[in-house]
């Protein structure tokens, strides 16, 4: 697709917030909506959506996860007539992409989804009906770096940021056919879309080696010690790289970092000071939105004084 086509296409998209954004990731929901409004991008929430199955349902049976994700896409396509679904959560984004891939390539998945959809009483989703994108694609392709630069009110200049993408945004590669596709496309080994956007807003991105490291999110509660170790690595690597802020683009990664930052302090006695802030919050503040408007007060990691000091409030 040509760049200008995407620019038009992403101006109005179906919005799939997912469960986490109604709960612990509410700050991400608030800031995504506020950012969209500020940028003149329309979000139409998917009617009566359901959970995509997160990382858990697939362990009971992957085909149920495929069905759950397909129902969301079916609603967007067949009931709302939309051709783009935007999901800010890595988990949702990943699962919809995975379902898309399986429905395109696996006869058995098509058969199970068709059977369940018919029984549930809605149209079966057909591969190719919608394009699923992440919140990063949404801002990057509809507004882009140039567009952002023009709109920046409070530059993020002087803020040292480590961009953290987690696992589900890039892995496994085969469900993201548009990535690693030459100039301008996202990279699965060294993603840069968030870096590009924040840099356009003035930020000082640091060289961060653990961009796609895993935080142990799947076992954040069932094997907390492992998660705490993995998160501690990420936080310390960010600080060692000189970062004051870790920018996030997923509610699960974000709350994983926040939760285990505290747990590391309480159980291992390892204290880190790096702030954890959603990229939508950072961009929103750069465009002149007040911290509360982007839900900074809903983060566990307290960065009020920090953003004030940096001239963002």
């Amino acid at each position: 697709m040509k760049k200008s086509d995407k620019q038009q296409k992403y101006k109005e998209v179906a919005y799939y917030p997912g469960c986490a954004l109604e709960g612990s990731g509410h700050a991400y929901n608030r800031s995504t909506k506020a950012l969209g409004e500020k940028l003149g991008l329309k979000l139409k929430e998917v009617d009566n959506w359901n959970c995509c199955g997160a990382m858990e349902v697939k362990n009971i049976d992957p085909k149920i996860q495929t069905y759950l994700s397909s129902r969301v896409m079916s609603t967007a396509a067949n009931k709302m007539n939309m051709d783009v679904v935007m999901a800010p959560c890595n988990g949702c984004y990943h699962n919809l992409k995975k379902a898309e891939y399986d429905l395109e390539n696996d006869e058995k998945s098509r058969e199970v989804v068709d059977r369940l959809s018919k029984k549930a009483g809605h149209d079966t989703y057909q591969a190719g009906q919608v394009e699923t994108i992440h919140a990063l694609d949404w801002v990057k392709d509809s507004i882009g770096e140039e567009g952002l630069k023009e709109r920046v009110k409070n530059s993020l200049e002087g803020i040292k940021i480590a961009n953290y993408y987690g696992c589900m945004y890039t892995r496994p590669r085969h469900i993201f056919p548009e990535k690693d596709a030459g100039p301008g496309s996202e990279s699965t080994s060294k993603p840069h879309f968030m870096d590009d956007l924040l840099e356009a807003a003035g930020a000082d991105n640091v060289e961060f080696p653990l961009k796609t490291a895993c935080c142990g999110g799947a076992h954040t509660l069932s094997d907390s010690d492992t998660s705490t170790k993995l998160v501690t690595n990420i936080l310390r690597a960010a600080e060692a790289a000189g970062a004051e802020v870790i920018a996030t683009e997923c509610p699960t990664c974000h709350s994983g970092l926040e939760m285990h930052q505290i747990r590391a302090e309480k159980t291992l006695g390892i204290k880190t000071n790096v702030k954890i802030i959603y990229f939508t919050q950072l961009l929103g503040m750069a465009l002149g939105l007040k911290p509360k408007k982007v839900g900074l007060h809903e983060n566990v990691s307290d960065s009020f004084d920090f953003v004030k000091k940096k001239g963002l409030a």
Partner: peptide
């Protein structure tokens, strides 16, 4: 996984 899936299957959504 079971607690989570049970809730999703029952209600369609999850509440953390």
């Amino acid at each position: 996984d079971e607690i989570f899936s049970e809730q999703v299957i029952e209600t369609g959504k999850i509440e953390d």
